[in-house]
Design a protein around this nucleic acid. Structure first.
Lengths: 216, 216
DNA sequence: GACTTTGGTTACTCTCGCGTAACCTTACGC
DNA sequence: GCGTAAGGTTACGCGAGAGTAACCAAAGTC
């Protein structure tokens, strides 16, 4: 004993870009399993096969690390959706493709994105970050609705539009949660169900059918 | 100086039941403002006008305290809804009354319930607690839908029913968030908007209008 | 008016985990 | 082949905040 002065060089010493991705992979995994607070930097570092100071050197504080996860995963998701829903298609087709892409993504990352997202909704430092992403989605959906409405020669106040879009996005998020909690469920089928709720409701609105509260 | 041996007796020494409510009030306030983790027991105690050991004596650990908040506020909300939506009304009327009561409640507790709820969705120890409450709501909504469907001589698989109900509940939660973030918004109007999305979509489903994915 | 229960306090302890200082070592430019 | 930057490590400081021990006093109770 006492030999092995130079520790097994195995194959270490990877370039920064690679290590960063490994760290993010580990971070997403650990944050998802444990939650932001219960997750320890030590565990993330260990899971990434690296020591803690490296994580700090590359990705900064725990909060920054979490935000980085959110960003990477969020961007991937947004790209998946944007890549599927071409802007020159009719509204229902766009909606359908967007939903399918979204649920496909969530289904494929069942214990990554969805869980991270859930975390972030509550914690104040991240809620803002999330609100921005959700805001972009809401804007897109609201734009679609507006487009469809104008095609019918109709028009609705911007707040109404925003709120309806917000509700649709909320319903979709909710089903994403549901999907994440039901490993056996089919993403495609979930997307279809969501489409039923969203589009049939939205279509009514587009055609000017409106529900009004009873006179009491 | 050195006098004031007996500290101002002011009017202290309240019965347990009263103090517990004060503590819960303070806890809801602080948890909402700071979030579960950032909230300190010291601050809650101070805000309740009492010292920390009393909080531990009456409500137990920090987690238990949070759960107690969730329970109290959740029960209040459920009661508000249940009291409004009589079970012998037609489905749309029940839905409308339930939504109105719900948004009324959220609007009246803008920085209490909604924020607490948001917190709890993410944190693992509480997510279960919440899931149970949401589950009850989903069940009620699903039951309503089922009832309406059967009245039309139609029937849908239980999973479909559950998922649609889940989506509606999710959309509603989402608008509750929106309402909590928009102090100027009118709860009644928000309920109407939700009703538009939920009911017009649901009504289509009830009448057997179903959207199907394009053949591709 | 003693005695016990209930409401209340001050002043700690102790853990946990973020963040860092100080220190190696392999690769690469030149 | 030699300097230096880039990749990597061990081992620790230390702040914060949950939870507690020990102790005090008013209000019932008999």
């Amino acid at each position: 004993m006492l030999a092995r002065v130079s520790t097994t060089p195995s194959f270490k010493r990877l370039p920064r870009a690679v290590r960063e991705q490994q760290m993010l992979d580990a971070a997403v995994k650990v944050f998802s399993r444990r939650g932001f607070h219960a997750a320890s930097m030590d565990e993330i570092a260990e899971d990434a096969g690296i020591s803690k100071p490296m994580v700090y050197a590359y990705l900064g504080s725990k909060e920054e690390l979490f935000v980085a996860c959110l960003h990477r995963e969020g961007t991937r998701m947004m790209e998946a959706i944007a890549g599927a829903a071409a802007p020159d298609l009719p509204a229902d087709e766009r909606l359908w493709r967007g939903l399918r892409a979204f649920f496909g993504f969530v289904g494929a990352h069942r214990d990554g994105w969805a869980v991270l997202y859930r975390q972030a909704r509550g914690e104040q430092p991240f809620a803002g970050e999330l609100a921005i992403m959700r805001g972009r989605l809401v804007e897109v959906v609201a734009g679609m609705l507006d487009h469809a409405l104008r095609a019918e020669g109709r028009e609705v106040g911007p707040t109404d539009l925003e709120v309806v879009a917000y509700a649709l996005v909320g319903a979709t998020e909710s089903l994403a949660d549901w999907l994440a909690d039901h490993p056996e469920a089919d993403p495609e089928k979930t997307a279809t169900r969501m489409m039923n709720v969203a589009w049939l409701g939205a279509a009514q609105l587009v055609h000017g059918v409106t529900w009004r509260p009873p006179a009491d």
